[in-house]
């Protein structure tokens, strides 16, 4: 049924919060290796969509398939282990840990020593630590964070913290990366750098789902765009199609009277 090149398939999901219908019968498919963007006015349900994909809460109805596997009833950490990484709209970095340690936490998925082995600090833990350190260095280098590796994240500028969050998500070796407003609050130069970073991530073969308000960024780097309004999909297509779609223009600017 599922075409092999769709990494993520969303089939008619809905989500109600009490009486509020946050998402109504939303469907879209994300092709592997592309940048897929979700846009829409405030409150359109973009973040809810991301939270549903990462199983932060279950959909009221409908189903989500990741690489053909159902995500129903999976815990968020299980979704992460399957290969879906994410960042948060209001950044959730570990403020009291250094940049390196933040990324090292991300390497959790590729190591398996438990409490007992860590208490004893067995040779296998040593080996694992070494691998984690190498992996971390590689990720830090990839995102140009190596010069700040030993600084505490809490004291770094907002833009850098956002990059740390992406680095941390990359460390889990995701196949699909969900970025929730990666350039919100960044200045123009930082936004440009971030666009470069996102393209670089895509070029390593990771599929990216981007939720953003910054239209320049979206139109510049997305391969495909879905537009949400009041929890419903109102359009989907390439940047050019979206820009000329009257429904989208209405949603953003309001209808002419």
């Amino acid at each position: 049924m599922s075409r092999p090149n769709y990494i993520l398939e969303i089939n008619s999901i809905s989500k109600n919060f009490g009486g509020l219908q946050a998402i109504t019968r939303l469907s879209f498919n994300v092709e592997e290796g592309l940048i897929f963007s979700i846009i829409g006015p405030n409150g359109a349900g973009k973040t809810t969509a991301i939270n549903l994909i990462t199983s932060m809460y279950p959909p009221t109805s409908g189903e989500i398939l990741f690489e053909g596997q159902k995500l129903f009833r999976k815990k968020p950490y299980q979704v992460a282990l399957m290969g879906i990484g994410r960042t948060f709209q209001n950044i959730q970095v570990f403020q009291k840990m250094s940049v390196r340690e933040n990324v090292m936490v991300g390497c959790h998925t590729q190591s398996d020593s438990g409490f007992l082995r860590c208490l004893m600090h067995t040779p296998s833990v040593w080996k694992e630590e070494k691998v984690i350190r190498q992996k971390t260095d590689a990720v830090l280098k990839f995102l140009d964070l190596d010069s700040k590796a030993d600084m505490l994240v809490g004291g770094l500028p907002y833009g850098v913290q956002k990059r740390v969050e992406i680095a941390r998500a990359l460390a889990i070796e995701p196949k699909l990366l969900l970025l929730d407003e990666p350039v919100a609050g960044l200045n123009l130069q930082e936004t440009e750098e971030m666009a470069g970073t996102i393209l670089k991530i895509r070029d390593t073969g990771i599929t990216v789902i981007l939720v953003e308000h910054d239209m320049n960024l979206i139109m510049g780097i997305s391969n495909r765009i879905t537009v949400l309004d009041y929890g419903k999909k109102i359009a989907e297509g390439s940047a050019k199609e979206i820009q000329n779609n009257p429904k989208v223009i209405d949603a953003y600017l309001g209808k002419e009277l």
Binding site: T54, K75, P76, Y77, A80, F88, V93, R168
Partner: peptide, 12 residues
């Protein structure tokens, strides 16, 4: 630091 974030990184 952040339980939600820890969860999103595959930590049970």
């Amino acid at each position: 630091g952040s339980e939600v974030a820890a969860n999103s990184l595959g930590i049970n």
